[in-house]
Structure formats: structure tokens, C-alpha cells
């Protein structure tokens, strides 16, 4: 199981640089931990403390996914998801929240999130999901050739 996860990681992908993942999380301890999980999993993490921060200065490279908390100080994660969708963004969104409430889950799923994870959630789960995203991202890149 563990070996599988390590293989799911992007270490084997063709791309030379580490795939980028955006983290938007206002709890500093969770943010730090998530960044560590990504680093160990072989990803590059761009971390933001709020939706506004992310909107003000999104990363230059295209991320393979967005890890998003629901309750942020200021604009909520769902509002951000809504806004990105309206702007035509296709970045896959994974919601990670400490409030497991049915309404936000349905809203997030209607807005097309890849997964809705409630805390506490295992690092392995997140890495497995990102592994899938990394694969589809690299195959999408190869298609035009």
C-alpha cells in the first residue's frame, strides 16, 4: 500500500520539474503540514492563507490541483471555487475541511470538486488523489504532440 503511494507520486513522470499544487488554508499548522506532505510526495507547494491572497497573486505556472479549505477568514473556499469556475478555470479542486457539513459538500460537488475530504484526513489519501491528477495532467500535455 505504502509503496503504491510512493509510485503514484510524480517521481516517475516525464516532467523534469516538480508539479505545482496550490494550498489555500488559514490554519497555520495545517498549512505547514500540508506543505510538508506535498514536499515529501514530490510536489512543489504554493501556500496561501486566504482566497483573497490567492486571487491577488496566483502562481505563474499552472498548478495540477488546488487544495482548498472551506472556512477561511474572508471569502470562503466555496465562493472561490464558484468564482474560479465562472472565470473558466479548469484547475481541479480538492476540498479539505474540518466542518463536515452536508450542505457545503453538496455545493462543492455541484461545483465540480474532484474530492471533498473532511479532517482529519490521511496524507496518503491526499497523495493518492494528487497522483491521479499528476498523471492526467501529464497525459493531457502529451496529447497535442
Amino acid at each position: 500500500m505504502r509503496a503504491d503511494i510512493l509510485h503514484l507520486g510524480p517521481a516517475e513522470t516525464v516532467s523534469a520539474t516538480e508539479p505545482l499544487v496550490v494550498v489555500i488554508e488559514d490554519d497555520l499548522a495545517s498549512q505547514k503540514t500540508l506543505a510538508r506532505v506535498l514536499r515529501v510526495g514530490g510536489y512543489h507547494a504554493a501556500t496561501y492563507g486566504s482566497a483573497e491572497e490567492y486571487l491577488a497573486s496566483p502562481p505563474e505556472a499552472a498548478p495540477i490541483g488546488l487544495l482548498l479549505d472551506v472556512h477561511l477568514g474572508g471569502m470562503s473556499g466555496l465562493d472561490l471555487q464558484r468564482r474560479l469556475k465562472a472565470e473558466g478555470s479548469t484547475i481541479p479542486v480538492i476540498i479539505i475541511t474540518a466542518f463536515d457539513d452536508a450542505r457545503s459538500r453538496i455545493q462543492a460537488e455541484n461545483l465540480g470538486c474532484v474530492a471533498y475530504l473532511s479532517k482529519p484526513c490521511a496524507a496518503e489519501t491526499i497523495l493518492a488523489l494528487l497522483g491521479d491528477l499528476a498523471k492526467s495532467a501529464s497525459s493531457a500535455q502529451q496529447k497535442p504532440h
Partner: peptide, 22 residues
């Protein structure tokens, strides 16, 4: 309160996962 409790539990779970992996 559940939210407040889930934050550290989540970080603990993920950190422990990392330690195990490493």
C-alpha cells in the same frame, strides 16, 4: 469546537503519516 479539535488532529495524522513514510 469540533472544527477547532479537528485542525490539530488532522495535522497530527498527516505528520505521523509523513514520519512513517520517511
Amino acid at each position: 469546537l469540533a472544527h477547532e479539535l479537528n485542525q490539530p488532529l488532522n495535522a497530527i495524522l498527516q505528520n505521523a503519516g509523513m514520519a512513517q513514510m520517511l
